[in-house]
Design a protein around this nucleic acid. Structure first.
Length: 590
DNA sequence: ACTGATGCGTC
DNA sequence: GTCGGAC
DNA sequence: GTCCGACGACGCATCAGT
């Protein structure tokens, strides 16, 4: 099979936003793919499952640019400035990426050369597989060589999509759910079968495998896919709603509330003495948390799958440590040392498998009850919970969760149909975070001092904007975060016009930008925007309130999002260093 | 042995 | 993680 | 309601370059 067959599907997908049309194109592709390549098609377009343990390719935009620079003899600087220019220009089409650029380069070069033989799917796939295996000194060079030779044999269109694949973003508007629907139609002529396929995918988490199984053994085999201890299960996610009242209504007037701990989610599998741990995205966490493995080992059951939130805990102060500190535990080396320094607790909140039985289709109430029977006297706790039937106790429980150092609550359906449903499907779980409460005092006003150009669907507008606070003592503006979320397309366009007259070539002397941060464009400090965040964090990067709480650290914002432009504010009216310091102190008192 | 750049994972 | 857009 | 893809801060691993 030619790689061009794949590429032409990509091109078609790229030219439409209609989902039904996309599915048609995918069905056509799947139908003409030989059985032995079906899994590879899936891996090339969606990526391979990470829990299998293969190393990543370890190559993304910058290294792709370096490769292109070497093989076409164009300086890296020139490619980067070209991209910047082109990203600032057009908006209608999505041809402003590195992949398209390579395509045009190839186009020019090929005028004089003989057309290369078309690449095959296996050729491209196996080159990527080979690149994963390179490591150690000189490995980057070898990866670039592999990529360069692939590009050398590629037509302009092939080159474009090879680069997009390497960048890790096809950006054509399809992902797992669309592929599943296409599978159902292609192999069973009945799109309602997507539920069966999705169900199997939830238990196997490898669409390449599912697709091949479907191609070889049909839908019957898919129905037979069952939980295997040691293979992760796709995690159930929570929806969001704006108020506790809405949540209660959605869940039928009553629900269970659980603390939403600020840590990382762990799915633990126990088979006799063998324990494996998975993250939310099904990466292995087994090696990182030997202490968690011990806790699980202590449960007196042979086969078990459960889920919980793993939080860093300060034993002497008897309270949680910030999420940032838990991240010290996500490491490969010195685990035994760091495990003492950052003790960890696991708050268990769900049971998926016990003995020989799947609990996925049991109700929340039953799963929770079984869980509470299991988690006794073995170093584990269940997530704190309460059943509520009205807003008042909801708010009280929420307040308590914040006082106890959590982010908020998860509301869970206690109806009979409240099964464990993988993916963010349905409204059986609804999260409500402290930060959703529209407390005006929680937002901050930042001066915009620069921006980066957007990519993909944001080509032609700013992709992110740099925000700074005002430091009265030094009469200067200190950056504290980038803001990219919360903009509508209209606002984004408005910003282009608004900042056009404020563009400057050289950095304003009153603005302090950390050297790690590289804006595409600089603005003279003028426009103020309102920004909301979940939390103020200690920052190794930003210079706002630098050194105030920690050596060589400033303050930044977790999950910053744009609220509105504040035309009524002058740059000197922005949130000040003192105010930010005050906010940080208040937050840590809780 | 160290630093900076880059990638990739958590949220 | 947050968010908005297209369906 | 679903699905998708724009983009955030931050910590660790890896590699190139010194």
């Amino acid at each position: 099979m030619k790689y061009l067959d794949l590429v032409s599907t990509y091109e078609k997908l790229d030219n439409t936003t209609k989902r039904l049309e996309m599915i048609d194109h995918l069905v056509e592709l799947i139908k003409k793919t030989p059985t032995d390549l079906i899994d590879k098609i899936f891996y090339l377009t969606l990526g391979e499952p990470s829990w299998i343990g293969k190393p990543e390719i370890g190559m993304a935009e910058k290294l792709a640019i370096k490769t292109i620079s070497a093989s076409f003899g164009i300086p890296v600087k020139k490619i980067e400035s070209h991209l910047k220019k082109v990203r600032g220009l057009s908006s209608e089409n999505r041809t402003t990426d590195l992949g398209s650029f390579v395509g045009t380069l190839k186009g020019k070069k090929q005028m004089t050369l003989i057309k290369p033989k078309p690449l095959t799917v296996s050729q491209v796939y196996s080159t990527f597989e080979k690149m994963r295996t390179f490591s150690g000194s000189g490995s980057q060079e070898r990866k670039m060589k592999s990529l360069a030779s692939l590009l050398g044999n590629a037509s302009p269109k092939e080159a474009k999509w090879i680069i997009r694949t390497i960048e890790g973003k096809l950006r054509v508007g399809i992902a797992e759910m669309t592929m599943i629907e296409a599978l159902a139609i292609a192999f069973t002529d009945d799109k309602t079968n997507k539920e069966i396929i999705e169900n199997a995918y939830n238990l196997r988490c490898d669409l390449g495998y599912i697709a091949k199984e479907l191609a070889v053994n049909g839908i019957k085999a898919i129905k037979n896919i069952k939980i295997q201890i040691g293979n992760p299960i796709r995690m159930m996610l929570a929806q969001r709603l704006a108020t506790p009242e809405e949540i209660l209504e959605k869940l039928g007037g009553k629900c269970a509330l659980e603390y939403k701990y600020d840590g990382i989610r762990i799915q633990a599998h126990k088979n006799e003495d063998k324990i494996v741990l998975f993250s939310r995205n099904l990466e292995s966490l087994t090696e990182q948390f030997p202490d968690v493995r011990e806790y699980i080992k202590g449960i007196n059951v042979n086969q078990l799958i459960l889920e919980g939130e793993c939080v860093a805990y300060d034993i002497t102060k008897n309270k949680f440590k910030p999420f940032q500190e838990l991240m010290h535990r996500r490491r490969k080396y010195d685990i035994d040392k760091v495990k003492e320094q950052f003790r960890v607790k696991l708050f268990v909140f769900d049971l998926l498998f016990l003995g020989r039985k799947s609990y996925l289709n049991e109700s929340y109430v039953k799963r929770r009850k079984e869980l509470e029977n299991l988690i006794k006297n073995n170093g584990l706790s269940t997530a704190k919970n309460l059943i509520v039937e009205s807003p008042k106790p909801f708010y009280d429980f929420l307040d308590n969760s914040i006082k106890d150092g959590c982010e908020g609550v998860i509301a869970k359906s206690i109806q009979i149909d409240s099964i464990y449903k993988a993916g963010a499907r349905g409204f059986l779980w609804i999260k409500y975070k402290h930060s959703y409460q529209e407390n005006l005092g929680d937002s901050i006003d930042l001066v915009v001092v620069g921006a980066n150009m957007g990519r993909g669907k944001w080509a032609g507008v700013y992709g992110a904007v740099f925000g700074a606070i005002y430091d009265k003592d030094t009469d200067s503006f200190k950056t504290t975060c980038k803001i990219a979320s919360g903009f509508t397309e209209d606002v984004l366009k408005t910003l282009m016009d608004l900042f056009d007259p404020l563009r400057i070539k050289k950095q304003d002397p009153r603005v302090e930008l950390p050297k790690e941060i590289k804006p595409d464009v600089l603005f003279s400090p003028n426009i103020v925007i309102e920004v909301r965040g979940d939390e103020i964090t200690l920052s190794p990067t930003y210079s706002a309130a630098f050194g105030e709480f920690k050596e060589n650290a400033g303050l930044s914002i977790r999950f910053p999002r744009f609220i509105q432009i504040r035309k009524d504010k002058n740059p000197e009216d922005a949130t000040t260093t003192d105010e930010l310091i005050q906010m940080f102190q208040n937050q840590n008192k809780k």
